[in-house]
């Protein structure tokens, strides 16, 4: 970012009028500043005001009112909406589901993307190719990936890739998505998200790796430290801040999962009957199918609460780790 490509300043500009009274000039200069600030920040403030502040405030009030097929306020019911949701077994099930899913996908993605980053960062030749290969899945939407996973890789018919491979070993065709016990559909969900996200986080880890001073590695090599020892004593501790940031991103993303779950389980089944649902899917059903905006809003705040709790918990655990060293 240099100033060399600056366009030529326009030379025909009116030179600043010689001010009669410097005080007045300072005042008008101040006003000009405020005006410029207002113009530059207005679109963002208005947009966030309407789509965040007003929206969330309204929704918060709706969560305390009876609001079926209406978004009008007034029919206050206290905490009924929250109670109704929390006593709804399917919503509670969706919360359990998403916590399990998060506990599974986050460590896996973390380990896989860190491993890839270390490997890619180690090679000299072909680094760009490997980076592209691993990043390319990030271009694919969850819906598109769900199509490939559901209809081709893990489709229940014998021509699916997983079943074709299984047949090589004499296995019978398996309905991967429909099998609930053992829950084979977890393999489908986890591999999909892993494939789609691993490249993104790999990029972040590579950026972190490249900010580690080289002399540390040289010192370690002089001391005869092997690759594993080097990783444990230098790379991993030096990636601490990167790791904490990445973990946070992964947690938040996993807890809000919707697209691929919806595409795999909901389309085709009538809504509400899908075997696997995330909290967001449940809320989508409540708000869009039942048009119960009160309960839906309550759910949005419960989900926020869950996300905030998990991130606080993560902060606490990792915060303690920091205090120790």
């Amino acid at each position: 970012m240099t100033a060399t490509d600056t366009p030529p300043l326009h030379t025909d500009a009116v030179p600043p009028a010689p001010a009669a009274a410097p005080r007045r000039r300072r005042l008008s200069e101040r006003r000009a500043k405020i005006l410029a600030f207002a113009v530059l920040t207005a679109p963002m403030l208005i947009g966030l005001g309407i789509f965040r502040y007003v929206a969330i405030g309204w929704s918060f009030l709706l969560s305390f009112s009876e609001a079926r097929r209406t978004i009008a306020l007034g029919d206050w019911v206290g905490l009924d909406n929250y109670q109704q949701l929390l006593s709804d077994e399917r919503f509670r099930g969706s919360l359990t589901m998403i916590v399990l899913f998060t506990a599974l996908i986050v460590p896996l993605t973390f380990a896989a993307s860190l491993g890839l980053a270390v490997l890619v960062n180690r090679v000299r030749r072909g680094r760009a190719f490997f980076r592209t290969a691993f990043l390319l899945p990030a271009a694919v939407s969850y819906v598109a990936a769900a199509m490939i996973w559901k209809m081709s890789l893990f489709s229940g018919v014998p021509s699916g890739l997983a079943n074709t491979l299984g047949a090589l070993f004499g296995a019978d065709p398996t309905p991967w998505i429909q099998t609930q016990s053992p829950p084979l559909y977890w393999i489908v969900l986890v591999t999909l998200r892993l494939w789609l996200q691993v490249g993104l986080y790999m990029i972040l880890f590579i950026a972190g790796l490249q900010s580690i001073p080289r002399h540390l590695y040289e010192a370690a090599e002089l001391d005869g430290a092997g690759p594993w020892r080097t990783f444990r004593s230098i790379t991993f501790p030096m990636l601490r801040n990167t790791s904490v940031a990445i973990l946070l991103l992964m947690l938040i993303a996993a807890l809000q999962a919707f697209d691929e779950f919806y595409t795999i389980f909901s389309t085709g089944a009538s809504l509400g009957s899908e075997p696997v649902r995330t909290p967001l899917m449940h809320l989508y059903g409540v708000a869009l199918q039942d048009q119960d905006y009160g309960v839906g809003s309550a759910g949005a705040f419960l989900l926020t609460l869950l996300i905030v709790l998990v991130t606080l918990l993560q902060g606490r655990i990792l915060g303690f780790a920091r205090d120790k060293d």
Partner: peptide, 26 residues
């Protein structure tokens, strides 16, 4: 102004979908 803008980041994105739908719908 900065606090007002940064403050919106505290709320997870997908959770705002329903509130935003209420506003845009209305």
């Amino acid at each position: 102004v900065l606090a007002l803008i940064v403050g919106t980041l505290m709320i997870p994105q997908a959770v705002t979908f329903l509130p935003t739908f209420v506003v845009v719908g209305s």
